[in-house]
Design a protein around this nucleic acid. Structure first.
Length: 496
RNA sequence: GGUCGGGUGGCCGAGCGGCUAGGCAGAGGUCUGCAAAACCUCGUACAGCGGUUCAAAUCCGCUUCCGACCUCCA
């Protein structure tokens, strides 16, 4: 199907409603997603967001859009409570150069993204690689009168901006009156800022600060929010289609980003703002700073107090697909266990499906039903990327597929053309759109051959009704975590 | 404290005025030397109390519990 046949609707955080998706240039989509700050290992919460946007990216591609997908790497500009740059702090702790830290965790991030089978973005710009663009933007904002310089630092004047444009606070639902009211109470407590809600777009660096650059105002570094404004403008233009990120970035990060873009270019950066909800663990937000976190590696290996065993990346991906990106998703061992079973069943069904064959060329009783479910699955994706619903449709198809195989449904009740369409749609959704992989595909090597031999020997024993031998093989393998599955057409095996 | 979002069957998780998803667990069955696996079938839940409506898990009000943001976080 082409773009035209789909009616993609997206929930826009800015307007708080679902809207028909209409890109500013027909057939092309510009999408910017806020990436990680590479001062530490990525945790699973980060991954959820990037997996969500990966599915969105994949679906846009499936629909036939030409997508330029940007996801930045933040390697400068995040301040800690004590005003120290995150990157410098990480560097000092590990006794490394700041760029070494950034490199290390960027590589780690890429590795994890790869095992989660996410497609790489079209451009992955780094904040430190765009200092000039950021300086230019600071100058533009100053020229437009929405910023002021204090002791070598430049601050965005939120109050003036709010009063003149009425735009500040729209995305996050902050009220300007509150900001103004707040200013009366808190004004005297402030350091260099005129107003508590003002934020730095350029910071003068202290002597011990390692990451710093020359600018018209001071030897310093750019404010955290600025990089996204500068880089999205550079590669996607002043106005693009989709801006995404985690819910926790809505305020202040995205609010300030919008202010900077408007302040510099008089243009709203993006038409549609998408925010993914948080990954929870034990009912609480998974967070680096709170320590309520599990790393992807810990989850894969099972080396964590939070899980009873390891779960493969694709199980985790499947688990995340089962909830909508705008809902919170609570990670528990039990839920993961359920996801593991469901994922395997889905993959098995696909294998079964691809081997089904029918000779029936005429229109058949099951055709309408199958067509209906397939279409419904795509409609679910068109409705704000509703993966859990689409997945539910897929499982309805799983029942049909298995029934066709096992004989509860007659294979001649489906026509050749619909069966072919089913095969194609099913694998397109699970692999191309959901980005799943069948990681049960066993690796090549001697194991397969050995197992085939063992199964063959056991089959001989069974034919001879030599149950002790047959059971010994089965039980010993079981102790080795290998499960023998006896079926009608012989036995197969898998790791437990 | 302010702002926003939630409480759905044993667990996870969709739906968001009538058609009452889906996964896992559970029960029954098929298959099997036995077992496991696999497969099929089944199960009527929407925090509480009021209200609106012919009709509410879905709308409104109150109560209560939870979470997120307001400060670095995807």
């Amino acid at each position: 199907m082409s773009i035209k046949e789909h009616q993609l609707h997206i929930y826009n955080s800015l307007t708080r409603q679902k809207e028909k998706f209409v890109p500013q240039v027909d057939g092309y989509v510009g999408m910017y997603v806020c990436g990680p700050t590479v001062y530490n290992n990525v945790h699973l919460g980060n991954c959820r967001t990037f997996i969500s946007f990966d599915v969105i990216y994949r679906y846009l591609l499936y629909l036939g859009y030409k997508v330029r997908y940007l996801r930045n790497i933040t390697d400068v500009g995040h301040l800690l409570d004590d005003g120290e740059d995150r990157m410098s702090k990480g560097a000092r702790l590990d006794n490394l150069e700041p760029m070494e830290v950034a490199q290390k965790y960027t590589l780690g991030f890429h590795d994890i993204m790869r095992v989660f089978n996410t497609l790489p973005p079209s451009i992955e710009p780094r904040a430190t690689g765009h200092i000039l663009e950021q300086i230019e933007m600071v100058q533009q904002i100053l020229d437009n009168g929405y910023a002021y310089v204090k002791n070598g630092s430049v601050y965005f004047d939120t109050l003036k901006f709010a009063e003149q444009t009425g735009e500040y606070g729209k995305l996050s639902g902050r009220v300007i009156d509150d900001l103004i009211a707040e200013s009366r109470d808190n004004l005297k407590n402030q350091d260099e800022k005129n107003h508590p809600s003002d934020f730095a777009i350029w910071m003068k660096a202290s002597d011990e600060h390692i990451m710093k650059w020359n600018s018209p105002w001071s030897l310093g570094f750019p404010g955290w929010h600025l990089e996204c404004s500068a880089m999205s403008t550079k590669y996607l233009g002043q106005h693009f289609d989709i801006h995404g990120g985690g819910n926790d970035l809505k305020f202040p990060h995205h609010e300030n980003e919008i202010a900077q873009n408007l302040g510099a270019c008089h243009t709203h950066p993006a038409t549609y703002w998408l925010h993914t909800n948080m990954l929870l663990m034990n009912g609480k937000k998974m967070s680096k700073s709170d320590g309520n976190t599990i790393s992807p590696d810990e989850l894969f290996s099972g080396e964590s107090i939070h899980v009873s065993k390891g779960y493969s990346p694709m199980i985790v991906r499947f688990f995340m697909l089962q909830s909508h990106y705008r809902s919170t998703n609570d990670l528990t061992d039990e839920a993961l266990l359920a996801a593991e079973k469901g994922f395997k069943r889905l993959m098995e069904a696909n294998k079964t499906l691809q081997q089904l064959a029918t000779n029936n060329n005429a229109t058949s009783p099951l055709d309408d039903k199958v067509n209906e479910i397939i279409n419904a699955a795509f409609e679910d994706m068109d409705d704000d990327f509703n993966t859990p619903r689409a997945l539910a449709k897929l499982f309805e198809l799983v029942t049909i597929i298995n029934s066709l195989k096992e004989g509860q449904l007659n294979i001649n009740d489906i026509s050749v053309s619909v069966l072919e369409k089913l095969k194609s749609a099913f694998s397109t959704i699970i692999f191309d759109i959901f980005g799943l992989k069948d990681d049960a595909e066993s690796s090549a090597g001697p194991v397969d051959g050995l197992m085939n031999l063992i199964i063959e020997l056991r089959q001989i024993a069974r034919t001879n009704k030599d149950w002790p031998t047959s059971d010994k093989i089965r039980d010993t393998l079981s102790e080795l975590n290998i499960q023998i599955k006896d079926g009608k057409e012989g036995s197969s095996w898998s790791y437990k």
